[in-house]
């Protein structure tokens, strides 16, 4: 028995030492989260235009074309909670900030969790990967009980983020994606059941709450608050429903009733019908990101 217990103790120590090594290694490897955090900690005073949102913004607006002082703080797959918390954390100490541009896609207000089957059946929970990455690299906790270790060791973390250098964005936070996915028309189809998910209403209400809070913060600090719905390809739009559009426009009107908010819906804009500007049916590629950045700049007079 003594021999067995020793084997377990040695194995246990080795396990915890390895866990420590993973933590140490991770803290030495850069990724988009750690870079964006570093930038905001060190260069927030220079930021004039701050881009927030998910992949619809991170990959779809090239900040280099939007004028000096633009930084893309958006992060793929994030829930609006993190945008609100980032804004809350930094806005008071951003003397040059003139406008905040937030992307609001057609689907994201319904998906707190990006695991679709789970969203349909269970109460949506925050994506564990996001929890882990924001907590570890941007020091924003989702809730008091969240623990990035649990996320890591329950297999919720994308192994790629643990192994390699995942710094994919440029110095202005833009993650450039060239060309198209192989099955670009087929991926990211609009789920027609999205409005009828069990918790769709609750998620939209939660989303509206965070959006309103961001509008409040901008209003308080005399910063323009701009919301845009990025363009999508025809193969995506064919599944878009008026019911869904009414909901996202309703969210904007709800916020506008209390705080100033500027909004343009580019979802079905005629300028974005060419196949060549899309990475997949709902995301622009680098060609599209350049075109879109210039358009947003022009439309909002930046």
């Amino acid at each position: 028995m003594k021999r067995f217990l020793w084997a377990i103790v040695i194995g246990g120590i080795a396990f915890f030492v390895l866990c420590g090594a993973v933590e140490f290694y991770q803290s030495r490897v850069d990724n988009n989260y750690s870079y964006k955090y570093w930038y905001m900690e060190n260069h927030r005073h220079e930021v004039v235009t701050l881009l927030l949102g998910d992949s619809y913004i991170e990959n779809a607006i090239n900040p280099g074309l939007m004028g000096k002082g633009t930084f893309n703080l958006a992060r793929s797959s994030r829930w609006i909670y993190y945008d609100d918390k980032l804004l809350e954390k930094y806005i008071a100490d951003m003397p040059n900030l003139k406008q905040v541009i937030l992307g609001m896609g057609y689907k994201p207000p319904y998906f707190k969790s990006y695991h679709y089957p789970e969203s349909e059946s269970n109460e949506p929970e925050m994506n564990e990967h996001e929890k882990y990455m924001y907590e570890k690299f941007m020091h924003i906790r989702y809730d008091d009980n969240s623990n990035h270790w649990l996320g890591l060791y329950r297999g919720y973390i994308d192994p790629g983020t643990l192994i390699g250098n995942n710094l994919l964005c440029d110095s202005l936070g833009y993650e450039r994606v060239d060309g198209q996915s192989v099955n670009w028309r087929l991926e990211h189809n609009v789920d027609s059941n999205v409005f009828h998910q069990k918790y769709a209403k609750e998620q939209v209400a939660e989303y509206t709450g965070y959006l309103k809070d961001m509008a409040r913060l901008c209003h308080l600090h005399k910063v323009r608050f701009i919301v845009i719905t990025p363009p999508c390809h025809d193969s995506y739009i064919v599944n878009v429903r008026q019911e869904g559009l009414d909901i996202i426009h309703g969210i904007i009107e709800n916020v506008r009733s209390e705080y100033p908010i500027e909004y343009i819906d580019y979802l079905q804009d005629e300028e974005y019908r060419a196949d060549s500007i899309y990475r997949n049916c709902s995301h622009l590629n680098s060609i599209g990101a350049d075109i879109f950045a210039l358009r947003v700049k022009k439309d909002f007079g930046l």
Binding site: A14, F15, L18, L152, G155
Partner: peptide, 12 residues
């Protein structure tokens, strides 16, 4: 074994 356990958890 510990390494294997760690990898299993990460890749699980």
């Amino acid at each position: 074994y510990a390494l294997l356990l760690l990898l299993m958890m990460v890749f699980g």
